[in-house]
Design a binder for these strands. Structure first.
Lengths: 341, 341
DNA sequence: GGAATTTGTCGAAGCGCTTCGACGCTTTCT
DNA sequence: AGAAAGCGTCGAAGCGCTTCGACAAATTCC
């Protein structure tokens, strides 16, 4: 392996000079810099990460804790993870992948071993075990998600409440007066991740203001689960003319079932979703949707964490404004009563 | 931060003794070990990763290169990544997440900086730029996937050829004589990742032996894409009575379309898939499938790479045997000609 | 024109750990 | 009984880098 010393010797300067060329922390004459850089290129030198971390006590690594669970919509996690990795690289950081498995111990391990300079946590619960540790940690952390008490922490998330409100407005604006919400699996609510509840709050509040009746049902993502939920919904509220779906796995089955029942979308019934754009656009009926901006969330989280590392930082909650895209699945409330075939 | 020296002092031994307690590389009396371990627990000591890496020239990190692309079926990637992270942790390793973005440069960087002890590469192309570098590298690597020339490399993958053969056998056994293969998007074939072609080879060969006619069509994963492909298939081969789908995004649309056309699965037409078990089990008709064992692949890759790191290793290709699970989507060839409504 | 400042470079001290050789002690062998 | 071997511990060297203080040389100041 080529070391700093090798480069120094090759360039005819001292080791510290090479180090300063690399870090730019002291001024270096143009000629020396050129010579050193040529030597680096010629020898194919790469600084040893361990040595660097030891000497500088910065590893240039950001830890990313992702959930193990598979009941969340996986592509969103993946998209976030990739955005994190890509953005981090752009700032000179690598990403260490931790699974939720280790739980709070992972926070302690990272903190203690100085493996990473900072952490990004996904799948944050309202009362997350990891938060107390994170608050005491000397290394900065950023959450993707919003816990019950975000004080002393940085958080990035979609403004799900606003997203819910936006859905209510859109449908109310089209004349709908009875809306059903097809929610996440019951397990998601039980886990208290918060985002599903926040959406619901936004939906409820705005619906109330707009005089719209709302029915909410959690729903398993399987075809059978959606069928059962749908049946119950029409049973309880036969006058339902619009659906809001916050459950990625349920959108396709829902559309298929409605079609099967002879209810045309959007003529007889409107459907809108809160999901990644890609999913909405490629559904069998392109869905009017509020997008879950996975990439933006990952990017923001990294930028926040890097800002904190560089001291130009702050705790604080960043809620991304929701954006509604109108596609083909929503329309005015049908004039005649809906009559399934 | 608590250091080794602090622990040593607290326990009344030398630093090297503490180190040997930690590593177990020299024998330590039971009493000393107990004392040191108590001090470690009491002080909450965690070895500094950088120092350790520098002194031992082992980082206990495995790099995982995942593709940036989003045209592959993401849950499989994610499942592999999580399996890799979990298995690695079980062996005392952490996982560094690299995206394909950096390409071959990433291999050089990891190698040069000693950031990781080994690498696992996903999304391997038949003629992958990274392979020459990997062959020369001093650190072991394992591929998930199978390149054109695997010599001097370790590879883990599903035996897609056998998987294809298995599908042909199953359908032929049920009496089908005309099979259509709904393949991956054309882009996947163009990228020369190999797995799609290998499946096709297996299908073709075994079909030939069994006297079954095979039609293969690449297919976009969208609803519209599947509709177009399906139309073309029935146009060219009206006698088709069975489908093999190797395209996770196409399974649901295909089932929906067949239903819409009044073709009952499996009474009028059989459908089987090569996809993760979960997807097959939760489709609107539970699918007979050959599972893509994402977890196993991740686990095997880590075990292979760890074995290499510990010297009880070997290059070599590990092809996982495919497993067929019969569910509800395949049945005997219909006796009467298929008559779509 | 000499003092004060800035610029560019170097040497040396460490960062916290692993590991090697050494050493005293106990056990085993013949 | 004495030599050989094994056990348990320690001290010191060194992994490759960053960073601080020092110091000549070049520049600026009144």
């Amino acid at each position: 392996m080529v070391t700093l010393a090798d480069v120094a010797q090759h360039a005819g300067v001292s080791a510290s000079t090479v180090s300063y060329v690399l870090s730019g922390k002291r001024s270096i004459s143009a000629s020396t810099r050129a010579r050193v850089e040529r030597s680096i290129a010629q020898l194919g030198y790469h600084p040893n990460a361990g040595a660097r971390a030891l000497a500088s006590s910065r590893s240039n690594i950001i830890a990313l804790m992702i959930p193990l669970r598979t009941d969340m919509y996986v592509p969103v996690m993946m998209e976030i993870a990739i955005a994190v990795a890509t953005t981090a690289r752009g700032h000179g950081y690598d990403v260490l992948l931790l699974t939720g498995e280790e739980g709070p111990a992972a926070v302690r391990r990272i903190e203690g071993s100085a493996l990473a300079d900072a952490m990004i946590l996904m799948d944050v619960e309202l009362e997350d075990d990891r938060l107390p540790l994170l608050r005491e940690a000397t290394r900065p952390g950023v959450l993707i998600g919003l816990p019950a008490d975000p004080s002393g922490l940085s958080c990035v998330d979609l403004d799900f409440e606003a997203a819910g409100a936006l859905c209510a407005e859109h449908l109310a604006g089209l004349g709908h007066r009875e809306i059903a919400v097809i929610g996440e699996a019951a397990a998601v609510y039980e886990r208290h991740t918060g985002f599903a509840e926040r959406t619901l709050n936004g939906l409820r509040e705005r619906s109330g203001e707009l005089g719209v009746r709302l029915l909410h049902r959690p729903c398993e993502g399987s075809y059978a689960g959606v069928a059962a939920t749908l049946a119950r919904v029409y049973d309880e509220r036969p006058g339902t003319t619009a659906f809001v779906v916050q459950n990625e796995a349920a959108t396709d089955p829902l559309l298929a079932l409605l079609r099967q029942q002879g209810r045309a979308v959007p003529e007889d019934v409107s459907v809108m979703a809160i999901c990644p754009d890609q999913l909405a656009a490629h559904a069998s009926v392109p869905l009017t949707s509020v997008r879950v901006p996975a990439q933006d969330m990952g990017r923001h989280a990294v930028e926040q964490v890097v800002a904190k590392l560089e001291g130009r930082a702050t705790d604080g909650v960043v809620l991304l404004a929701p954006e509604l895209t109108v596609r083909e699945s929503t329309g005015p409330r049908p004039v005649l009563p809906v009559s399934p075939r």
